[in-house]
Amino acid sequence: MNNIKKNRIKDKAFKVWGIACTFLGLILLCIFIGSILIDGLQRIDWGFITNLPSRKAERAGIYTALMGSVWILIFTTIIALPLGIAAAIYLEEYAKESKLSSLLEVNISNLAGVPSIIYGLLGLEVFVRVMEMGASILAGSFTLALLILPIVIVSTREAIKAVPKSIRDASFALGASKWQTVSQQLLPASFGGILTGVILALSRAVGETAPLIVIGALAYVPFAPSSPMDEFSVLPIQIFNWISRPQHGFEINAAAAIIVLLLITFIMNGIAVYFRNRWQSKFK
């Protein structure tokens, strides 16, 4: 009798503890977002989005940084997508089980865990200096593409792996070659999953600051970039820059810019979730 009671108390205690743990993170996040909203919401208007940077806090806008982020996002996608998907297809469908392929797999997982500043140093040496791209959008995009490549590869592999083996069997049995099976069955069937992974990877890229600072992205750019070889700033760097200013007005600007950045990542994650849900129902 006593034992049962004890167990029941333990059970309840753990439940309470679990709830507390779950809500702790959420509550902290809510407080953070709440205080940002209180500080920044008043500052957000169309002018804030479209104004160029300025020394006066109330006239400064995020236009150049926002455009920098958009350019970076586009070129990172262009670079990382074909590389990551091709690598994933190779590893999942073509590579035979060997020491080389397992070595590759271990290294790709390791790459996902390398601190982003290391990628920045790599980008500085390889893209900025050796390949003489300068602190350009292209150099930044290549650096971020390397950074998210492991995520793209891993999530694409998972998506391809989730296509039932029976689909491959059916395609092969009808006389399809491997490439026909990959391009006409596996990729369309795993499209949603791949997209989910890619969007999540990109939403990480859009928030990255350290590697871009290392390769020399500027805190102050007078105009929005107009070609991939232009110098650039991005939203997180702009935020970092504003926060480090002593004037109170820039703090409010930073809060407003954080709202914009959060909104972008939330929207991207939302799209990812949407595609994941749509895609999951496909094989049920």
């Binding site: 029976s166 069997d169 059916a170 009808l174 069955q185 369309p188 496909k282 094989f283």
Partner: peptide, 20 residues
């Protein structure tokens, strides 16, 4: 092998239509 499989069709245990 692809040519061979056009000659020799196969039907599987579980119906496996393509998701198309």
């Amino acid at each position: 092998v692809e040519q061979l499989r056009k000659q020799v069709g196969m039907v599987f245990q579980k119906p496996n239509p393509f998701p198309k």
